[in-house]
Design a protein around this nucleic acid. Structure first.
Lengths: 175, 175
DNA sequence: TCAAGTTATATACCTTGTTATAAATATGAG
DNA sequence: CTCATATTTATAACAAGGTATATAACTTGA
């Protein structure tokens, strides 16, 4: 009864990926301890990471980088701004553009996230993706099963957290 | 600039899968000609397919089968009911339960979808998933690229549509 | 130079998922 | 039998994505 979607082949892959992504995000939120999260919505994390990596960016650049529609990015910026994690300054060359940058508070938060939630999420998700086999559809099915049977949080027990920058560096070498 | 998410490793996989799913669904909507769609929201398609395959079901059974929270299913049922595609009848054994079944109009609609949108979606999505390689993360990245470079619709040109039931039967054999 | 078009951001509204909870019904223990 | 608890569906409120469009600022061409 539970696996009805699997009988619908590739036609339902869109629905399945969407919900798989939502479940990953939900479980990712559970990974952070209270200290590292402090009420930050999950989708803000990639935005902060991009800002940290690529310095100040315009709303449009952020949207393109995140491959996301601009109004959603604007909304996240408002949220982050209300928490004093980012600040916007008008571009002197072109006053339509506002440059988004991390505040000092934002940088401090990013530092904490780099030591806790981000590597935890990376390592847990990598672990759940290990050894998938078969067609992409099969792999998605395996992921669905794994995610409901052993949540991300349980995959971190007894694992040492790497530091975020080291993780990414290492990954870029392997690739 | 465009591939910023790829530099974030597994940590951003949730966001990426969610948006990849959304884009697949959006492009799937473009596949149907006006006749086969008639204003049916994309997420209703799996629901109709399950109802067609497994006969009348309760709301709870549908939610479990679709691996989705119950209130979302209730909302879709209301929508489909307003279009006369499904009907609900109270279960004689347990009056809390209402059994959801396709109406004659619903069956006719399903018949049309089986001959057009569903196989089109299945074949197009299968084609875009062909020959992916590398880690799951790599495969997702390849899918993102392919989807933005050649949309699902363009993958159907000159391809004969199979019938839905034959497609699924064939797939279950291959597997 | 200024009118017309283009671009960047913000806003409004919609969609579709979620949780929490209420209301109706069923079940089971005493 | 009755009351406490379970279960089923519906409703309300929220989250985070989307499209369409308005507004302000820039650019270009006659």
């Amino acid at each position: 009864m539970e696996d009805g979607l699997k009988t619908l082949g590739y036609a339902a892959l869109g629905s399945r990926l969407k919900r798989l992504g939502e479940k990953l995000q939900a479980q990712t939120a559970d990974l952070g301890d209270a200290a590292s999260q402090e009420g930050l919505p999950v989708p803000c994390n990639p935005l902060l990471a991009i800002l940290d990596k690529r310095g100040p960016l315009s709303v449009g650049d952020l949207a393109r980088t995140l491959q996301q529609a601009q109004p959603g990015v604007t909304r996240m910026i408002h949220h982050l701004k209300s928490q004093n994690l980012v600040a916007t300054t008008p571009d002197p060359q072109d006053r339509r553009i506002s440059r988004i940058a991390l505040t000092d508070e934002g940088k401090a938060r990013v530092k904490r996230l780099k030591e806790s939630l981000w590597p935890a999420a990376d390592q847990a998700v990598q672990s759940i993706c290990e050894g998938l086999s078969g067609s992409f559809l099969d792999q998605v099915a395996q992921l669905e099963t794994r995610l409901s049977q052993s949540p991300l949080k349980s995959r971190l027990e007894g694992i040492a957290l790497a530091d975020w920058d080291q993780l990414l560096e290492q990954r870029s070498k392997t690739q």
